[in-house]
Design a protein around this nucleic acid. Sequence first.
DNA 1: AGACGGTGTCCCGATTGATGGAACGAGGCG
DNA 2: CGCCTCGTTCCATCAATCGGGACACCGTCT
Lengths: 267, 267
Amino acid sequence: MRASDGSTGTSQSLERGLAILSSFNSDRPLLGVSELSRGLDLSRSTAHRYVATLAKLGYLQQDADSKRYRLGPRVLDLGFSALNSMDLLEIAAPHLRQLSDETQRTVNLAILDGTEVVYIERYRAARPGQREIDLNLHVGARLPAYCTAMGKAILAFVSAERLDEVIERTDFVPLGPNTLTDPEAFREELEKIRTSGLAVNDEELAYGLRSIAAPIHSHSGEVIAALNLAVHRTVVSMDELIARFGPAVTQAAHEISLSMGHRQAPA
Amino acid sequence: MRASDGSTGTSQSLERGLAILSSFNSDRPLLGVSELSRGLDLSRSTAHRYVATLAKLGYLQQDADSKRYRLGPRVLDLGFSALNSMDLLEIAAPHLRQLSDETQRTVNLAILDGTEVVYIERYRAARPGQREIDLNLHVGARLPAYCTAMGKAILAFVSAERLDEVIERTDFVPLGPNTLTDPEAFREELEKIRTSGLAVNDEELAYGLRSIAAPIHSHSGEVIAALNLAVHRTVVSMDELIARFGPAVTQAAHEISLSMGHRQAPA
DNA sequence: AGACGGTGTCCCGATTGATGGAACGAGGCG
DNA sequence: CGCCTCGTTCCATCAATCGGGACACCGTCT
């Protein structure tokens, strides 16, 4: 039974329990035991045992009226332990803040996880009122790497094997007016980024959304993250975006890399 | 019979697996299998099975050099699913932002979890440069309720049973110059808050830290959260804090409660 | 009222998945 | 070099998990 599949040496119970936790999200914040058991193909008894365990530990809370369950505050602890254990964040934060202050724009920091970028930090433009370009882009949010400036900035500098794997697993769906949908065109785009050091996103993710991004390297030289600066199309043209903010973005990324201990190869 | 044990109907494996996840934090970001097995009193094999499961699912990542493990980006998903499933956040966010803009101060939103408050949202003062009062108070951070303005604002309006339980479980340790360490004095303080509608923290948590907070009620009338406005002692006196910002704080909290569907009792 | 289909919860015997000792290879250190 | 500790894998044993079944509870429909 355990023969062929790759499940040797793993715990079924833990996997199922976490599957229950991940069943909850913004769209489905309240789930009942039966609902969960159906979704994960478990018996009601089994689902209930996991739910009871999670509730006992504070990861789930039972709603008094509906008897259904919701995520508890305890799960926040995990996420923020993860954030805090990245010293990248600590190092990058002041630079991000300065960049945001200087430019009066929203800047973000993200890492690559599989084929997606994950937002790690975010500084909103100090001045409110300007058009909010929110696709629900809070810290922790995920976007496909192939159609974001930060994703491309990172992928331009990963190893060939890793890039091949990401491209292999990526579904190049057009999400914006200018989304790159051809893997070969995408590779050429990365090549350009590799020489310029700056990645652009000109409405590739969504209509009206423009951003520029630069990669951040660790002390060992490998790319570990990217930062971007995002604006709405009505605010500034692509050329102006690059001309006015490109140098500040690449320089901030460069400074963070230096602080991480990265010694650049000669230009 | 089933009362004392508490372990009936729960999953040992899941509990252990989650214990492994929670072993990671900012202070201990990298842990090895042996280290974990010792800390949780498991065999190395067992610990490894859990770790392998967590790694397979993306909750842990193995460091290539040290072979030890760190939290993976996947755990962020959980935390932010929790945040996003609170419609409180969606409703409160614009009010918090407005309050922060108007007052040019940092404002926070928190809920109660057991004896602690958990930060749910945070708007920093738009103008940087003013003294940063950071006790690592990011979203997700926890503080004891008894020595924070938000904690007191919430506890002043919870049911008598819940309050008794919290007080019972609270260790009244002096953390600042004015920390309330006597449960009876604490109860009187809550009584005052109940009539004034405003909770104050005058260096009860830490030297120099002052804040005022007001409770937020749900449609059913029960208290579900609190918001605060925090300043450093050098910036403003306690009286001035209450006089200048008190009305804005209570009004913002009130407006959020109204948006949540709360119909106030006549003043 | 009564029957019904749904829920969450609890119990218990069968069995399946978890357990941990042992062993291996890889490093690190003196 | 020996010695230790690490992560990892294997496997026979066994205990923890499993799921059917039963219960109480809730609306809804007949």
